[in-house]
Design a protein around this nucleic acid. Structure first.
Length: 500
RNA sequence: GCGGGUGUAGUUCAAUGGUAGAACGUCAGCCUUCCAAGCUGAAUAUGCCGGUUCGAUCCCGGUCACCCGCUCCA
């Protein structure tokens, strides 16, 4: 096992031990792909979420013209009219039938496999990858087709072949017929039934991404909030996908949380805004403690782009399980005018935008910086995790102060009466403004170590000098060094350190 | 969904066909004027279900979860 894998194990253990992240339904043995956030985890997640909301909606970036751009928020329902998912393509386009091969243990998309069925109905049929070259096909025919050539066969797509014919098909990677399973439908969307009676009439879906709720409210927002293009609509919320293989702790979960912005602009301005958002989003990740050196910007190759997108940049982070490679943290996609056009067509409601100044009507193009909040949390934890053999805890979480679940601990040096009341006073004074913790019990080293392990950036310690001159020591998590400041200055100190 | 591996206190590990032990952590108390000190005490575990057996944490089967590799990831 590599160091990186070892590190991931340690991180998962720390997350549980200190109350960041637990397996969902832990006492029942867990449930694959679902996770719960504990007392510190929810603080961390809220901190990241709130910072994103602040940077997007409350205090959006300055645009190219020097004025702040315009972004408003929504919070849409997880369940929407199912037609919405027909329009987006989630129902029609992405539930591909899959077949498994019992012998090669491989899985294939049925529409990606072609079958050569012999014209005379004699002998086995041969399956190939849809991209197989004629040379590859001829080579296998020579081995397996008993003298027949390509001309003796008809081509068919595997999902067009009746299931009873499968026993006669030789899978793409094997030599004997009958190893392919019947095609099975895979749909990433969770479904449910609306109303007490269940049946296909009231089948509905849990959203697989939050953006749809933004497009569905496009007209409502434009009509009600005085936004003028270009502008953005932001949303944070849960999304659900029936991932085939949930993996890597909370990285690929079946229930997760997204932070998505849909930026609506004119088509001609797309390249400019696209670059703008890549830059802004990078700035964001840096501001919460993810250095650019740990990020990789993948310009998604044309052939791998989603059908609606002409350009996507994946912002990837070097997670321990992907290291030295990277895995997706955020996607910045040009979605064209696909979504609004589709929803306009399926709903019959006009979703164009009227530009009063230019006296023109158009369906805006969309740039979508879409990030996983829960993936962001994982990135913050992985980035913060720092081994330090020279300190009692052996490890500390180097969170950016703005992200740290607890900003400061207030510690009376001893549990004696002289120290405790002063510490309590400081704690009561600070807690209105900062997430702080008062910890009285146990020796001081033990308490420092505990705060290191949960990533608390500062500890204020009340000692005998405090009684004499109202100063406390500030202990810095990263350097373990101390300085004295007056109790009255503690608030200013924290304000200065925490604003990121 | 497939294949391989794993499953013992909160964590990391040990042991055993005769009902489990440590370290650290946690809690309580004493002590303590700055980095998990010292002392005393306490709580907490064989994932779940079934089978074999006089008796199963150990053997077998199933299941669930986690890890690795495929597959998938709009």
């Amino acid at each position: 096992m590599t160091d990186h894998k070892e590190k991931m194990k340690d991180i998962v253990a720390l997350c549980k031990r200190r109350g960041f992240i637990f397996a969902a339904s832990d006492i029942y043995g867990g449930i694959n792909g679902f996770w719960d956030y504990g007392p510190l985890g929810v603080e961390l997640k809220n901190n990241l979420r709130d910072r994103w909301w602040r940077d997007m909606v409350l205090c959006p970036p300055i645009g190219p013209d020097g004025a702040p751009i315009s972004i408003v928020g929504v919070d849409s329902s997880i369940i929407q009219n199912p037609k919405c998912w027909e329009a987006s393509g989630h129902i029609g386009g992405f539930n591909d039938p899959m077949v498994d091969c019992r012998e090669s243990k491989k899985r294939y998309r049925a529409d990606h496999v072609v079958v050569l069925v012999s014209k005379d109905g004699e002998g086995a049929s041969l399956a190939f990858d849809k991209d197989a070259t004629d040379e590859e096909i001829d080579a296998r025919l020579k081995k397996l087709a008993k003298g027949k050539t390509r001309d003796d066969f008809e081509k068919a797509q595997l999902d067009q072949v009746p299931a009873e014919g499968f026993t006669n098909i030789i899978g793409p990677d094997v030599k004997n017929a009958g190893t392919l399973t019947e095609p099975r439908q895979f749909n990433m969307m969770f479904h449910t039934y609306v109303g007490a009676a269940s049946g296909d009439d009231n089948k509905a879906y849990l959203r697989p991404e939050t953006c749809a709720g933004i497009f569905l409210n496009f007209k409502n927002v434009v009509d009600s909030s005085r936004v003028k293009a270009p502008f953005g609509i932001a949303q944070v919320g849960k999304a659900f996908r029936n991932e085939v293989t949930p993996r890597n702790f909370i990285f690929r979960s079946r229930e997760f949380e997204q932070m998505e912005l849909e930026w609506f602009c004119e088509e001609e301005e797309v390249p400019m805004w696209f670059d703008f958002w890549v830059e802004e989003r990078t700035r964001f990740w840096e501001s919460v403690g993810i250095p650019k050196s740990e990020l990789y910007f993948l310009d998604v190759p044309k052939e791998e782009l989603a059908h609606y997108s002409s350009r996507t940049i994946d912002v990837e982070y070097r997670f321990p399980f992907s290291a030295p490679e990277f895995d997706e943290l955020e996607g910045i996609a040009h979605r064209g005018c696909f979504d609004l056009t589709q929803h306009q067509e399926f709903s019959g409601t006009k979703l164009d935008y009227f530009d009063q100044a230019g006296n023109k009507r158009f369906i805006p193009h969309v740039i979508e910086p879409s990030t996983g909040l829960t993936r962001g949390v994982l990135a913050l934890i992985c980035q913060a995790y720092t081994v330090d053999k020279d300190r009692p805890s052996g490890v500390y979480l180097n969170f950016h102060p703005a992200m740290a679940p607890i900003k400061a601990a207030i510690l009376p040096l001893t549990a004696k009466e002289e120290h405790v009341p002063l510490a309590q006073k400081l704690y009561l004074d600070l807690r209105h403004e900062f997430a702080v913790e008062l910890d009285i019990k146990q020796n001081i080293g033990r308490r420092y170590a505990r705060q290191d392990e949960i990533g608390t950036p500062y500890c204020f310690t009340v000692d005998n000098d405090t009684i004499a001159d109202q100063t406390v020591t500030v202990r810095d998590r990263n350097t373990m060094s101390q300085e004295r400041i007056h109790m009255d200055k503690v608030k200013d100190f924290l304000r200065e350190k925490i604003v990121g």
